[in-house]
Every structure is written in structure tokens, then in C-alpha cells.
Amino acid sequence: MARDPAFHPPKSPFVEAMAIFLGNRAAMAGLIILAVVILASLIGPSLYGVDPKATVNAPFLPPMEDVASPMGTDYIGRDVLAGILSGGPATIMIGTSAALVAVLIGITLGALAGYYGGLIDTILMRFTEFFQVLPALLFAMVLMTLFTPSLRVTIIGIGLVMWPPTARLARAEFMKLRNMDYVRAERAMGARDRRIIWRVILPNAMPPLIAAAALVVGVSILFEAGLSFLGLGDPNIRSWGEMIGSNRDYIFDCPWAVFFPGIAIFLTVLGVSLVGDGLNDAMNPRFRER
């Protein structure tokens, strides 16, 4: 009997989505980039062992001139490679936390608006639109200048400007799913709204929301870089954006001090976006060919 690869028992939706994701070359490339970035961030600082905040060498030292500083030094002699390695965890942590804040706000408001509809929907959506029409960077800058910049303020500030798209997506999913037969059946079993929203509809709405959340992480990292560049981040944390920001006045004297953190941001956001797109393709049934 010939083996027919298309002839197999049905797989669970999760296994099927995983197979699509793993078969997606771009997503795999993104995953590899992310793995390298995370690995470098985790073990890089202890392996390299140079203090990123201290002046360790002559200022404006170009890359490869001194083997002790392969990526050169910045305007006060801080090691660029050390900064990149230690800035990774901070950048990724701020990006994911801010995305988490945004997704939590977005899902909560979107779920309530989409499930209840009517007046609640109108009020919540006008509220969402109010946030959406504010210029995001400007709004984040206002938040950052109102409060003393710290890690927490940065995370919450970015989260507050990033949630509207997630809210709209969650609302759309809930509007679609609230009329499903199994939701009706659940209601006929005597379930209360709270249970139906969080335990019945939300798990079914998760796939597109997970994919969207991954993309929010990428944009949040960019946002953090932008804020730090403008000097509005926590000055005590060496993130990649902060490295670019503190060296921007010396961009012609030591372009490498700006270039390398820029590349790091670019690669990380690229990796996150590729993975996010891959998740979107794998989990969104519209893109599946059957």
C-alpha cells in the first residue's frame, strides 16, 4: 500500500497550527533571531564581563582597534558591546511588559464592549477612539514627563498608548463568538456572564489575540527606544534606546555607538514581527488552505 502523506487522521487544532508555524520559513528565521538575542542577553553579560556603565577605555574608540572593546567605546569611554549585551534584557523586558499591559487593557475593554454591545459598547468604543486619535508618541511623552521616568512608568506609559488596536480586535472576536451556538448552550445551562466571557469565549478568541500581542511586543520595543532616545526613559537603565539617545550628540564622532544598538533593535523587532506574523498565519483560519 502506497503511503499517502495527505491521508492521515485529523490532528488537534493546536498541533495543526504548530505544524503550519514550524513550516513557515520567515517565522523560523524570526525564531532563530529571537533565540540568539535572548541567549546573548542571558549569558552574554557574565561571559563578556565588562561593566556597561563604567568608563573602561579611551572615549571615541572605533570598533576593532582594541581587542578589549570589539565594538568600540562611546563618548565617555563606555564599552558598546557590554551595553548591547546588558541592554538586551531591559529592552525585551520593557517591550513584553508594556505589551502585556496593553493586551490586558485591550482584551478587558474589548471583551466587555463586544459581549454586551449596546450602550456599554458605545461608551467603551468612544473611549477607545479617544485614545486612538491621540498621537501615540506625543501622548507617551506627556505621560513620561508628568511622572518621574522609571521602569514602571515607562512600561505603563507605553501600555497605555498601545491598547486600542487590541481592544478593537478583541471586541470584533467577542461580537462574532457571542452568538455561537455553544455560547447559547452555555447560557441555557445557567452560566453567568462572567463565566461566559472569560471561560467560554476568551479561550476561543485567543488565537488572533496571541498573534496581535506578539506584534504589539515589537512595536513596544520600538516605542521604548524612541522614548529613551528622546531622553524620557529611566536614566539608570541602559537599554538600547538609551544608548542611542545618550550618544546622539556625538553621532559623527562615534557612529558605531549608535549604529550597533540600532542594529540590535532592528534585529529584535524584526524577529518578534516575523514570529508574530507566523503565529497570525498559523492561528488565523482564514489564511489556512484546506
Partner: peptide, 17 residues
């Protein structure tokens, strides 16, 4: 609902989560 009065729906294909 569900305890004293229960209901079965038309579409068994979509009535289960």
C-alpha cells in the same frame, strides 16, 4: 436554567465548545 429546565439545540456540530 440547566438544572430544572434544560435545552438541546438544533446544531450539534456547533453547540459544543
Amino acid at each position: 436554567r440547566g438544572a430544572a429546565i434544560s435545552m438541546i439545540f438544533q446544531e450539534p456540530m456547533t453547540s459544543l465548545n
